[in-house]
Simulated scan of single mutants.
Amino acid sequence: MVVDDSAVIRGLLTRSLEADHSIKVIASVGNGEVALKTLGRHDIEVIILDIEMPVMDGLTALPKLLAAQPGVKVVMASALTRKNAEVSLRALQAGAADYVTKPSSTSELTSADNFQRELTEKVKALAAATRSAPKAKPAVKPVAGTGTGKAVARQSGSLYGGRDIVLRKAPIISPRVIAIGSSTGGPQALLEVLVDMTATVKLPILITQHMPATFTTLLAEHIGRASGVPTREAVDGDQVEAGHIYLAPGNYHMVVEASGASSRIRLNQNPQENFCRPAVDPMLRSMAAVYGAGLLTVILTGMGSDGQKGASVVVEAGGSVIAQDEATSVVWGMPGAVATSGLCSAVLPLKEIGPSVRKMVMRSAA
């Protein structure tokens, strides 16, 4: 269902979505109140929800829609302004699954191939997640040594599509730095993990979250307020300091380079990787080269496979990788890619990731 007060925008969104023959727009309405009435009459998996509308705006409608149909995925749509970015982040915290930034004019929207690709991919990924909707599944932990430095975690039934999750034994070397990659569902997941982790973990933390500029500025502010840890959108040349959190700014890859006995952050606008900038892979490649076995990587919820190739480099350098599990991920794309590639030392529910990191850091420091 498309919800926008502009009939022109609704038509353009509908045509963009239905250009992909696997997507069917079954309702197009002009405000949140009508969307609520329409929701009960149709089998809807994903809602594209505008923010600014008369009668009932998107932020007001969001919790009502989620209550009316638990499990429906809502994608917030707004123009890229600081005000709308702030509202979108509030919506994500209130249960929206993702967001898209609409081009600033109908002419731009008509010709925005990247926007159409982003919109259709998000809708398809969220719809697939809605259909699979895994029930609660146990954390995946090593249960049997293989003699190769790995362990195989087997669970009965169709857990993770019936696939074995092959886990590596966690390195005993103390982590010196933490890298986190996330995308769809990431802002909510980041806040939960960081608030749970940073009270005792004082390592530097570098984060790449797939987000445009303005959004990353506000997300850094949100993380800083929630965690109580100095957090900033990274600036080229920043020295990486313990007890600080650095977030890759929108439209820039964030990498690390050695600088004497310390390390510094560098930003670049090299080509997109995995259709993203910032992307997780370049961050992980650079950090693996600088920190080696001292790098602990966490891959949270997100569509696609960004982070998989970088995580492979991390493991080759002796570092370790933890992934969020399928049941607690909004989309099990990025974490699923690393979990099913034999790169992880653990695959955990979101609520267990912070405590697990704390234990790894404190055990190594003991």
Rank of each mutant, 00 (worst) to 15 (best):
L17Q: 07
L17W: 01
K24F: 04
A35F: 08
L36W: 05
G40R: 13
E45Q: 15
M53P: 09
T60F: 00
L62C: 04
P63N: 10
V74W: 01
L80A: 11
N84S: 07
E86T: 10
A91I: 09
L92T: 08
T101I: 01
N114W: 05
E121L: 04
A125M: 09
A128L: 12
R131I: 03
P138I: 12
V140H: 03
T146K: 09
G147V: 12
A153E: 11
I165K: 07
L167A: 11
K169V: 06
I173W: 00
P175G: 06
G181L: 01
G185W: 01
G186H: 02
T200Q: 12
L203N: 05
Q209M: 01
P212D: 05
L218V: 09
G224A: 07
S227F: 02
T231Y: 02
G237A: 06
G243K: 13
G243R: 13
A248T: 06
A258E: 15
A279G: 15
D281G: 06
D281Y: 00
A288E: 05
Y291H: 14
A293T: 12
L296D: 08
V298C: 07
S305N: 11
D306R: 04
D325N: 15
E326S: 08
P335A: 08
G336D: 01
V338P: 05
L348W: 07
I353M: 05
R358T: 13
